[in-house]
Amino acid sequence: MISLFSLVKLESYKYWSKPRTYIGFIAITVIVVLIQIALYADGKAYWDFLTQSLSQSFEIRGLDFNGNMVCFILLQTLIVQMPLMVALVSGDVVSGEVQTGTIRSLLTKPVSRTKILLSKLIATEIYTLLLIVWLGILAWFVSLMLFGRGDVVVLKSDQLVVIRSADSAWRFLSAFFVAFLSLSVINCFAFMLSCFAENSVTPIVVSMSVVILFTIIGTFDIPLFDAIKPFLFTTHTIVWRNFFDNPIDKHLIWTSSVFLLAHIILFSGVSIYHFNRKDFLQ
């Protein structure tokens, strides 16, 4: 009997053998480095532009770029794009093997289908976790080394929130954890679509399209969309940002986290249910 751990190792090996797995890491590295260079060179001008209406009323002190602020900007920029990187890889996991036919030989092993699917899902979750860890290392630690410590200034659409440097570390750690939860939803969604599809392109394109569509709906302040927004998972995937509120809306964070967790369970459950009943002989 093959253990789940051995299966996860096997799936991870297959996963990391594909060049596309590294696209996310390369993309994150390029984007982070580019933004860090840009902010290092012109960050002050960027902030002056964004806060010019406030600078007419106040003398703004200490608004120099620091590692915490850079990390927040990077998170804000990348967490919108990262679901696409996750979907690009997770959408191919099952459908790719169906397309090439390797799934048939895999299913001949004396292992339950649920176990095979779980091993694939865990392998994609490891990838998602590593993506977040890599983002954390580049966006937070490297930014702190380059720009130093300082207060985080969060720009909201109608407000500016200042989080003190000493109060920021736990917020970043919590934000990274919730970001992982959010990406896991996208991962499970793309994974579920992958179980239904017969080719790799469809689940990748569909999951990317859904994320883009939901995100667009979330940006519009239209009453019709306002009614839909609470039910879209993309509304909850940005809850990491609420750790940078003052005071923190704990209820909103809990509600969104439960919503995300419920989606992970739902998408994983549907994947297992369908995979167990799917006819791979046709």
Partner: peptide
């Protein structure tokens, strides 16, 4: 600020 600039969607 525009919501797309602030990424303040919720």
């Amino acid at each position: 600020l525009p919501k797309m600039v602030s990424a303040d969607l919720n």
